[in-house]
Write a protein that binds this DNA or RNA. Sequence first.
DNA 1: GTCTATATATGGATAGAC
DNA 2: GTCTATCCATATATAGAC
Lengths: 197, 197
Amino acid sequence: MIDRVTEVDRRRTDTRDRLLSVALGLFARQGYATTSLREIADALGVTKAAVYFHYRTKEDILTGIVSGHADALNALLDDAIPRTSTLAGREELLRLYAGYHAAWGLDLTRLARQTDTEISSLPIGAEIRRTYRRLLDGLAGPDPTLLDQTRARTALAAIQTVALAPTLEDDEDQLRDAALTIGLEVLRQGQPTTPPN
Amino acid sequence: MIDRVTEVDRRRTDTRDRLLSVALGLFARQGYATTSLREIADALGVTKAAVYFHYRTKEDILTGIVSGHADALNALLDDAIPRTSTLAGREELLRLYAGYHAAWGLDLTRLARQTDTEISSLPIGAEIRRTYRRLLDGLAGPDPTLLDQTRARTALAAIQTVALAPTLEDDEDQLRDAALTIGLEVLRQGQPTTPPN
DNA sequence: GTCTATATATGGATAGAC
DNA sequence: GTCTATCCATATATAGAC
């Protein structure tokens, strides 16, 4: 009995997840506002009405894509932020974020970049901004100067360069290594005690 | 006679430029796709039809905002790129871009960030991407490794952090200084001959 | 140069059959 | 779970008076 229920649940969530995956790709490439439900439905091989069976609104689709990742990142932040008073803790935070970034894939970052414009007025947009704000505050360390804050923003941007490279194909891992190397460089330069290389 | 013509021209372009200025602000804050012509007209204190008297399409407004700046940046690149085979030349290029960035204001950068999504399919979007590509290639120097390319992207991102800071108000100049400092740091780390500090 | 009014298309979302 | 058909709001853009 449990098997049958599990099977039904899986089938249901499979369709739902396929929808989220397709929508994420379109949102990331074209933008949230620019992407219509008709495009999502076409890419999925169904009609708009079928999409509305799974998600009540377009905004719900976006929330379905993002909220789980935001929760995961917030949990990571809950754990790592208390250690960011030291440079080692901040380096660890950047590594952790880079790891999540790699696991999520590139589209999610491209979508998150729309937080300040297209999806700025939506509740989920505000949550994304709050989460990034926590991440930046952690990377900047306690009582940060303007330079420290800029350093944090730049280190974060370094990791995200992977998602902005036009073509990456098979050298994605090398790109991630390069991005993390430079991000850590940026963080370390703020600490005069650490000798460069 | 020339005076009268000049006067008429100025009056005409004043209205046109006010429109561009208002539209830029809205596009930068809300996104190009999300902003309707009704919002632009309201912010300008006129009706939609009046807007259409000055610009034939919404896309024309966007082009009117961006094209002049893209041309200016391209001219700067024509001049500076030949010297980017040396680190000093690449530093100069980053300084020049930072200077333009400061002169343009923040909204233009926020608008340019939409090139990969909302306005990706428009001709002007392609031109912006081409221009940024030239800038990145210049900053990366000749025969760049993946690390060099990532360095270029990160240095550019450092300058742009100014436009992404949530509240800046009167300390914008200090923020720009910090951003340029870190951007140059990132470029220099690629050159082992340059001692840090 | 700006207005009112309107044409026209498309978007998000729902109703109800299968 | 998916379909066809439709509602309704809003968007871009135009026509024509002032």
